[in-house]
Design a protein around this nucleic acid. Structure first.
Lengths: 365, 365
DNA sequence: CATTCGATCTATAACGTTGTAACAACGCTG
DNA sequence: CAGCGTTGTTACAACGTTATAGATCGAATG
């Protein structure tokens, strides 16, 4: 086991330590370490063994400083959004496969997008991937003038030079959700929307057009929501006070849907028995065994791959204009929060639909 | 608005561009940019204005390369743990206040701790803060031989040289939770434990000793759990099949508690009416309006501050041995999932305690 | 035998920054 | 007016790496 360090003076071993140890020149050692062609098999082996022995690790900062390319892509994400966690994981893989590294910079309650982006710039990232950025379009355009910027999930129009968009087809996703619910027999389908959040407008539009397509224009109903559990819970409480409750809810995202679910469960309204709930994102929240939320999958892996390949194309000159806006088709993931609407009487009163009845009777399992 | 770049050749402006523009030497420009004392007010102003004009940003990599100090602290966190999100946010603030920067490296299903740590080392972090590391103690010791390492939340004993621990007093936290429940009148208090997870053993011990202290040794009951919703849900299902259900549950963490809550709600067991639930961590999950989980607060902010100050002390030579293990006292946050146990009859059958009755009747709000 | 060649290797100069030491210019003191 | 500390500024060398061009050598060519 190597002690605090393998070179006498206690500092981290450097290329010249390595070269000295292997008995070769510094540049040769460098070539071996980065796998360049040139060195003979013999020297290669000698250097690699020496590296092993002294525990040499290349210094990425010096490496980046010297080579004009940094092969570093900055990623701005929000610590509070589970979907971003999925995206970050997928981005690590996608970037790695493309020969790039990722630098993370988090946004949180006490850390603004501005701060997040600035540290990424200071780190000499060659391109930026911003997950659901909220910054004004002008600011994004300004950034894109300095380096390639990919906005994920946030639609932008018109696209400033240097700016690309990778997003799911939100309208199509909402449409799929509505189709699924209608196929199950639902007609009173409410959409809890995301206000001004990235993607919200598209989901709203998709919902409306799908409802219209099924001849349910009269049943269109939007409830103001948002992207957190709190928003979902508030919207669900609004629905609870209604005289006629819907039989299905399409929430803006999984977070929001979970707030809805929880509020319904607390009010003893069984899901999906009495009401179906659909989320959006297929974040890991939705996949939890006890949630099993039917949701619209955003294909984090695909979005990540496309975002990276878009950034790389810009950097390596292979960017074509027909891909300025990449739209990935989402797909519905059917789990356990959707079911055909209940049509039986409740057995506790004279009403025939459970929705109209005030009482709930249930047996412990 | 600056165009793609303010220097002719299209590259990012450098210190010498800045110096040229301001009509001073490179070192002087450098001194102004890093706020060193020396430059006159006049030159300072001239340089700053020039920086503004050409949009100069210091290159942190070159800066770090030159100065032996990198002022960079590496943070390894798990994308899936909400408590880590809180910690990361607090760490940004704590490190910033201490004059250090943070480099994030995420652990996820497809990214191991090993990978995460290696990128941090390559980035020349001067110290590592590992959130609930699972790596074998030997590996941590090996790391600590290279640079200061702080393990947060994971207890280690004996402490290898260079390794420090910052953690909450998990036993004390569990004790507070039990005290609270006992004060409310609970006696049948179950602990769903965290198996081999960092901190689990302490929480178990705190639970047991508190129960004993209240003369409830006979009521001690451990149910195997874990740190995810799934684990909590599974444990809750175990409890549901019991003939005599407990009146209160202390879960290993918030994630786990939410699985418990959800399972109970699905089974129409109102919380806290029939059963009280306490979590651990006070992550943002617990604070959600519709969850309002009573939980043990780990004081992310304090933990972060102590972890950073410990790392900084090591780096700057102010480390004393009496702080090798910093233990922060947690405190109970009482929200809405705990209440005195129900003692009234249920009104639907002859049994006197709701716990013994199979039926539930409730009115819609 | 002189030349050319490919295969290896090495010397040197960068990359953008900062620390150190040296240097000018200034007003003081003696 | 020489000597001296202060203040502001600059020249130079480093940090650890890589790109470029050149050196060395035996083998193959003319």
């Amino acid at each position: 086991m190597p002690s605090r360090s393998a070179v006498p003076d206690g500092k981290r071993p450097t290329l010249s330590d390595l070269a000295a140890r292997a008995g070769v020149s510094v540049p040769l050692a460098s070539m071996v370490m980065r796998g360049a062609k040139g060195p003979s098999a013999a020297s290669r082996e000698r250097v690699l063994r020496a590296a092993q022995e002294i525990g040499y690790r290349p210094d990425s900062r010096a490496r980046l400083l010297r080579s004009s390319r940094s092969h570093l892509v900055g990623v701005q994400f929000d610590l509070r959004q589970p979907f971003h966690a999925d995206m970050v994981e997928a981005l690590y893989a996608a970037a790695g496969a493309a020969g790039y590294q990722i630098a993370l910079s988090a946004v949180a309650a006490s850390r603004s997008e501005q701060e997040a982006v600035e540290t990424l710039l200071d780190d000499r990232c060659e391109a930026l991937i911003l997950l659901s950025p909220h910054a004004p379009a002008a600011r994004l355009a300004e950034l894109a003038a300095q380096l390639p910027v990919v906005s994920v999930a946030r639609r932008l129009r018109p696209l400033a030079e240097g700016l690309d968009v990778v997003r799911a087809a939100d309208d199509e996703g909402a449409r799929q959700a509505v189709d699924h619910l209608v196929a199950l027999g639902h007609r009173d389908i409410v959409h809890i929307d995301g206000g001004r959040a990235p993607g919200a407008a598209d989901r709203r539009r998709g919902y409306k057009s799908a409802m219209k397509h099924h001849g349910l224009t009269d049943h269109v109903r939007l409830v103001p929501g948002g992207l957190t559990e709190d928003h979902g819970a508030a919207a669900a409480r609004t629905l609870l006070t209604d005289s006629s409750r819907p039989t299905a809810v399409l929430a803006f995202n999984d977070h929001c849907a979970i707030g809805v679910l929880d509020t319904f469960l607390r009010a003893r309204i069984p899901v999906p028995d009495e009401i179906s709930v659909v989320g959006f994102d297929d974040s890991h929240l939705a996949r939890l065994a006890h949630v099993q939320l039917t949701t619209v999958g955003q294909e984090a892996r695909q979005l990540a791959r496309r975002a990276v390949s878009r950034a790389v194309a810009r950097l390596e000159g292979g960017a074509t204009d027909d891909e300025r806006e990449v739209v990935v088709t989402p797909h519905l993931v059917i789990r356990s929060t959707t079911r055909a609407p209940a049509t039986l009487g409740c057995g506790l009163c004279e009403k025939t639909a459970p929705n109209g009845c005030d009482w709930r009777l249930s047996r412990q399992s």
